[in-house]
C-alpha cells in the first residue's frame, strides 16, 4: 500500500511541476473566468433578473450568481487540458512509461485524474481570492465547505477528460472536443443563468441542462459555497464520476490496444 501512495505522490508532483512550468496555462486559467466575471457579468447584469432561489436567501448580484459557474468552468477547462496532455503524452510516448508501471492501471489513471483535480483546486481558489478582492465574496465558511465539493467536481470533470482522451486518437482532433464538449457543457448548464430562466424560453433546453452533469457540478459548488449540501447534485456528480470512470477504465484496457497501432 505504501508503494501506491509513493506512486500517487510522484504523479501529483509531476503534474504540479508541469503546471508550474506552464505559467501561461495558469494565467489563462485565472484570466478566463475573471474576464467573464468582469465583462460578461457587466453586460448581463441588467438583462437578467434573478429571483431568490436556494441557496440564496436574499437578492444577489449577477456577479455573485456566476461565481460557482466560473469555478466549474475552471475545472472543466482543466479537465480538458489534462485530457489534451494525456493525448500528447500518448503521442510522445511518455504515457508508455506510466502504463508499464507494475501498479494497477486503474490506480495509475485515478492518480492522474486526482492530480489534475488538485491542480484545478489551486486555480479555483486563486480565482475566488481575486474575486473576493474585487468585492465578490462568499460567506467565509463557504470557502472551506466548497473544498470537498470542488474535489468531487474536479474528479468528475477530470474523469470525463480521461474518458475522452481514450477515444481521441490524435492531437489534431482536440479542436472538436472544444466545440462539441466544452462549449455545450458550459452553455447548456446553470453556470450563466438559472434553469427556470432558461425554461421561460425553451423547456427542451432546460431539460437538456437538467441532465447535463456540469449543471449539477455547478449547483454542488453553488450550495457548498453557501455552506449547504445539495444531495441531488452530489448524487448526479458521483453517478457521472462512476459512469465516466468505468468508460475511462474500459478505454484504457490493454485488451483494446490503445497505444499507437503500428507493426
Amino acid at each position: 500500500m505504501r508503494g501506491w501512495l509513493v506512486c500517487f505522490r510522484a504523479i501529483l508532483l509531476r503534474e504540479a511541476l508541469r503546471f508550474l512550468h506552464q505559467r501561461t496555462r495558469f494565467l489563462a486559467a485565472l484570466i478566463r473566468p475573471l474576464l467573464w466575471l468582469v465583462v460578461f457579468a457587466a453586460g448581463f447584469r441588467t438583462a437578467l433578473g434573478l429571483s431568490i432561489t436556494p441557496p440564496y436567501t436574499t437578492y444577489i448580484t449577477y456577479e455573485v450568481y456566476i461565481v460557482p459557474g466560473l469555478c466549474g468552468m475552471i475545472q472543466l477547462f482543466n479537465g480538458m487540458q489534462s485530457s489534451l496532455s494525456l493525448v500528447y503524452d500518448r503521442e510522445m510516448g511518455s504515457m508508455r512509461i506510466l502504463l508499464t508501471s507494475p501498479m494497477p492501471r486503474a490506480w495509475l489513471l485515478f492518480c492522474k485524474v486526482a492530480a489534475g483535480a488538485a491542480i484545478s483546486l489551486l486555480q479555483v481558489y486563486a480565482f475566488l481570492a481575486v474575486a473576493a478582492a474585487a468585492g465578490i465574496a462568499m460567506p467565509p465558511a463557504g470557502y472551506l465547505a466548497a473544498l470537498p465539493a470542488l474535489a468531487v467536481t474536479g474528479l468528475m470533470l477530470g474523469t470525463i477528460g480521461l474518458a475522452l482522451s481514450s477515444i481521441i486518437r490524435q492531437l489534431e482532433n482536440f479542436a472538436g472536443v472544444m466545440n462539441f464538449v466544452i462549449f455545450p457543457m458550459f452553455f447548456l448548464s446553470s453556470a450563466l443563468y438559472p434553469l427556470w430562466k432558461l425554461a421561460e424560453t425553451s423547456d427542451l433546453l432546460a431539460d437538456i441542462c437538467a441532465i447535463n452533469p456540469f449543471t449539477h457540478a455547478v449547483e454542488l459548488i453553488r450550495f457548498a459555497l453557501h455552506g449547504e449540501l445539495n444531495p441531488g447534485a452530489l448524487g448526479w456528480v458521483v453517478a457521472a464520476l462512476a459512469v465516466f470512470g468505468l468508460l475511462a477504465a474500459w478505454g484504457y484496457d490493454p485488451a483494446r490496444g490503445l497505444i499507437n497501432r503500428r507493426g
Binding site: 508503494g3 509513493v6 506512486c7 505522490r9 504523479i11 508541469r18 511518455s94 508508455r96
Partner: peptide, 23 residues
C-alpha cells in the same frame, strides 16, 4: 520513442520512474 520528460532534470525523471515502481 523518447519518453523522458524534457522539462524535468535527469534525476527527477529517474526518481519519478522509481516512484511508479513504488520506490
Amino acid at each position: 520513442q523518447p519518453t523522458l520528460d524534457l522539462d524535468l532534470t535527469v534525476r527527477r525523471n529517474l526518481l519519478y520512474f522509481a516512484a511508479l515502481h513504488g520506490l
